[in-house]
């Protein structure tokens, strides 16, 4: 059966797709949190620097960044990350970290002023206020959008085949190049596999939308 054969072939690439996905999610979330917090911190230098980073990465295109990193890092800066996986993860994370830092910033700024005032009245330090009052509430508010970005990151992992990583799409393209008539089956299976990976993320996003609507997680 062609379908089984194709699926088996594709399975060889799913590992790379998953590794890139998981590493990118972790790294981009960290970047988003740090960059988002820096942008609301009262320090002109820090705010300016992160603002610059965010605008550069949001203003250019991920696919361009991916090519740029894969050629410039080893060539221009003589940085060898060991494997192209890290180039891909770095490009995806810096790109989506920039986008997601905006939701971190937006969520922090949308915590009502009264929460800050109550924290001052209770004599909390600035750090305690961030850690116990503002950030926990901001995270809850940004989770639905965060879920949406996780789906974007999943979709973005398909780009890594363009810089030579052997992911899902890479094996699909190999198979297609030798079995031209089976191209519809190949790409349909690839799409279905991506959709299977997306389903938990879609579920997460919907659940978080409900949580955010209520404002508070009960129990």
């Amino acid at each position: 059966m062609a379908i089984t054969e194709i699926t088996l072939m594709l399975m060889r690439g799913i590992k790379v797709t998953l590794i890139v996905l998981v590493l990118s999610i972790i790294l981009s979330s960290l970047i988003a949190l740090i960059a988002g917090l820096s942008r609301v911190y009262h320090n002109k230098l820090l705010t300016g620097f992160t603002g610059f980073y965010v605008e550069i990465f949001r203003g250019t295109s991920l696919i361009v960044q991916l090519f740029w990193f894969s050629y410039a890092l080893p060539g221009l800066f003589n940085i060898h990350l060991g494997s192209d996986i890290w180039v891909a993860v770095l490009a995806i994370s810096l790109n989506y970290g920039a986008y997601m830092s905006e939701i971190v910033r937006g969520a922090i700024l949308s915590v009502p002023q009264g929460q800050t005032e109550a924290s001052i009245a209770l004599n909390l330090t600035r750090f305690q206020r961030m850690r116990h009052i503002i950030v926990p509430q901001a995270i809850r508010m940004m989770l639905p959008e965060y879920g949406n970005y996780l789906i974007q990151i999943l979709k973005a992992t398909s780009l890594v085949s363009l810089i030579g990583l052997t992911d899902l799409l890479y094996y699909g393209n190999i198979y297609r190049s030798t079995h031209l008539t089976e191209a519809p089956t190949v790409y349909m299976i690839i799409l279905l596999l991506y959709f299977l990976l997306a389903l938990p993320l879609i579920g997460f996003t919907r659940k978080m939308e409900k949580v955010a609507k209520k404002g508070v997680v009960h129990g």
Binding site: G114, Q115, E117, A118, I120, A121, P136, Q137, R140, V216
Partner: peptide
């Protein structure tokens, strides 16, 4: 500030 406390018009309880 340690000697001063305040109750607000809109409560400002921590919802989380």
């Amino acid at each position: 500030r340690g000697d001063i406390g305040m109750v607000f018009q809109h409560f400002n309880l921590f919802p989380h």
